[in-house]
Design a binder for these strands. Structure first.
Length: 150
DNA sequence: GCCAACGTTGGC
DNA sequence: GCCAACGTTGGC
């Protein structure tokens, strides 16, 4: 089983929203690298580190699971959606999403704290200039993170 | 609101 | 295929 770190703006979809609903479609990915992870590497049941971004306290806020295969993101065809992509055609959808299911909330493991721990420096989300909304987390990194989230 | 870093677009 | 211009991300 693989572990992934997935960024979400809590104003749009927070760990509390996921807890309340149990399951969420991870809509709005508009980056090819992130899409390719969903399409090519995601496996049902993979672990997800739910990361809050673009907020007062960015960091890992909870754990989730991949709960579906990748399928076309309907918002790309919706002219009223901020995620609308007029260049994407229903017969050849450009953007995919997956469903994610709630596992548990954790303490907020802040970006600040992640940066303060040298053993976590390899995390892709900590690399300079890293903006990718979906990044793989190695087993070694997960083993270091797990006790910090307890 | 600022701005560095990055990805995409489109003219050539 | 190059690359300048532009748009977006996301921490601060």
């Amino acid at each position: 089983m693989q572990t992934w770190l997935m960024k979400s703006e809590p104003e749009e979809a927070s760990i509390d929203d996921l807890q309340r609903l149990g399951r969420l479609p991870w809509t709005g990915v508009r980056n090819y690298q992130a899409r390719n992870f969903m399409r090519d590497a995601f496996q049902l049941g993979d672990r997800v580190l739910f990361y809050h971004s673009s907020c007062a306290e960015p960091g890992i806020a909870g754990l989730a699971r991949l709960a579906s295969a990748a399928y076309p993101d309907p918002t790309q065809f919706d002219p009223a959606s901020p995620y609308h992509d007029p260049k994407s055609k229903p017969e050849a959808p450009r953007w995919l999403l997956v469903d994610v299911s709630f596992d548990r909330k954790t303490r907020l493991l802040s970006l600040k704290e992640l940066r303060e721990r040298p053993e976590l420096a390899s995390l892709q989300v900590l690399q300079k200039g890293s903006r990718l909304s979906i990044t793989p987390v190695t087993d070694a990194e997960w083993r270091l993170l797990e006790p910090l989230l307890a």
